[in-house]
Design a protein around this nucleic acid. Structure first.
Lengths: 329, 329
DNA sequence: CTTAATTATGTTTACGTAAACATATGGCCG
DNA sequence: CGGCCATATGTTTACGTAAACATAATTAAG
């Protein structure tokens, strides 16, 4: 800035004013400064700017993984909303580990972001302390079953599990198996299962068993699990998968082995990923507003006014979900 | 830091040394400082740290979109590599616009990142200027057909197009149509088409027409385009799609309308996305090392030693690709 | 036992910016 | 014409940290 100032024959402070469009600047000086800046290729140093002004246009984003398109959809929504308001995401992935979340949150907060996005409502005491000590705005996403730190954008995971169970029961299925992944560390999936279980219990139906793979979810994994389940001793008449990736693997297994869906076995997934449309059989699933969740969360955090009301009463914004009836139940 | 210092009965500088593990510190002082820091919940201010030390653990990542899983795969690879070495990605999307890339690069460079990831090898003069003025390390990804600024990690897009053409010709197809998206702004797709065209020309085969939708690529879009192509006047016997999303839309159209693949029409895609396995017909496509490209690029940028050799001769790292023969050609 | 290293700590300063606090000019009002 | 306000610019300082440059205490070497 000093160099630009010299070249334009003004003080450093005047350059700062031109750059930020604050205060009074004469037309003449403005153009001289702008020219000088362009000529020497001046680029602001945001580190200094943010240090001095005590605010950054950064939003920390903490997600469990990028390997699941659910979270890349969310990230896409966040990014779009933030970009529009001149904010930038800085992010990291926890791989569903609480310890990594703690460390990551601490690390990201050291950038003094103005906001932070967390997945889910369950966070360690350490994470909560870090956050409350820093006065960042917080948006929790995906889940609304519980008490948010500040505002949660998402849908009721439990209700999604319930609705799926009701639908499958209505279709006449009685003996169920649950197939999940990530070693059960996906707490949203656990809540869905919880809702699912509860409805089954009330209806007197049976949850024969729960298969939880330790792998990340994928079609291949879903196919393998389905094979195990169907060749096992206690064969169910329906499988509830923790997500579409696993469920589509289930469809593949059945197709490949001539197992008729839904007569011999019914399947249901979760997420409503677009690739389902390409499958030969339409999966019954729950369509979630992933992009919208991200966009709303981003919008909220980038909205400086929403910030000012710092003592926000914890609440949630329910973005709903949609059961998409397919041919697999 | 001053507060921690007071509490531990040492100077601010000693606290700094403990935090960064630099210089000599006695066991006693170290533990006192660590305790004090924990007690008052001290969190480093990276803005100040980076400002003073003139280096940041940030890597700027500029991608065309997050709406295409190709780039989320890449981003996942980048993130994994960076995280491991204590770096963080800060990113933005260009939506395939050169102007947005310029603005984004300028903006991201203002954070003084130690590295930047760009997609492709084609960049405006403005972008090149910004980058060379800032002395960041640069990794260009996806494409290696051309001269990189520094190091490019990717594969030959042109060769991919060529190989697809050769394969389809070998299967006896002669009249081709190309189907692309993004209004032709995807320069990698353009290079593939270029290679494809060239091989057809040399073989005396015909590229009947090139359909370029202005929409982002998706199965729905691919299905629509395929319908148009097949109902048009000059019906081809093969369609080369710019990617798997469009191609799988093509498969759907054919399945839904009883069009036999590959007898009535042959199809080929690009990327080798995992969901292809779930389709009733295996698509012939090119499998690209997307995650690996991201990982290698991230690794390179996070490697401080690779940095020191600042006058790197422009070169590329070819991560190759694999033609995956399916049932659609 | 001196001297020189090694270990351990402190003091001063600079990183690049913007907030806070001046100051100067001109125009408008009564 | 004096006073006040809007406009336009400058000067000083602080943001939180680490590099650079001391200095003190301890150990090793001769």
């Amino acid at each position: 800035m000093d160099d630009v100032a010299d070249r334009a024959g003004v003080s450093q402070m005047t350059v700062s004013r031109v750059m930020n469009g604050k205060g009074y600047i004469s037309k003449d000086v403005r153009s001289r400064v702008e020219t000088a800046a362009r000529e020497i290729g001046y680029v602001q140093n945001r580190l200094a700017r943010s240090l001095r002004s005590e605010q950054t246009p950064l939003i920390a984003v903490v997600l469990p993984t990028l390997g699941n398109s659910v979270f890349t959809d969310v990230l896409s929504g966040i990014t779009d909303a933030l970009t529009q308001k001149g904010f930038r995401p800085v992010f990291g992935v926890t791989e569903y580990s609480e310890d990594k979340e703690d460390a990551l949150v601490r690390d990201l907060l050291s950038w003094r972001p103005s906001g932070i996005v967390l997945a889910g409502l369950e966070h360690s005491q350490a994470t909560r302390r870090s956050i409350s000590a820093s006065s960042v705005r917080v948006a929790e996403i995906m889940d609304i079953d519980g008490t948010p730190i500040s505002v949660a954008f998402g849908m009721s995971q439990r209700a999604a599990g319930q609705e799926t169970a009701k639908y499958m029961l209505a279709k006449g299925h009685r003996r169920f198996v649950y197939a999940g992944s990530q070693g059960g560390r996906d707490l949203r999936a656990a809540k869905r299962l919880d809702g699912f279980r509860q409805v089954l219990r009330e209806a007197g139906a049976t949850l024969v068993s729960e298969h939880i793979s330790s792998e990340p979810s994928s079609m291949v994994e879903g196919r393998k699990m389905t094979s195990d389940i169907l060749s096992g001793p206690d064969r169910p008449d329906a499988i509830y998968y923790s997500n579409d990736d696993l469920a589509s693997g289930g469809i593949m297994h059945c197709l490949a082995n001539g197992i008729s869906i839904p007569d011999e076995i019914a399947l249901a997934g979760f997420n409503g990923l677009p690739f389902l449309d390409a499958l030969p059989i339409q999966l019954t699933t729950i369509v979630t507003p992933r992009y919208e969740i991200g966009r709303r969360a981003g919008q909220f955090l980038a909205d400086v006014d929403a910030a000012s009301s710092d003592a926000i009463k914890p609440h949630h914004i329910d973005l709903g979900f949609q059961l998409q009836a397919g041919e697999t139940c």
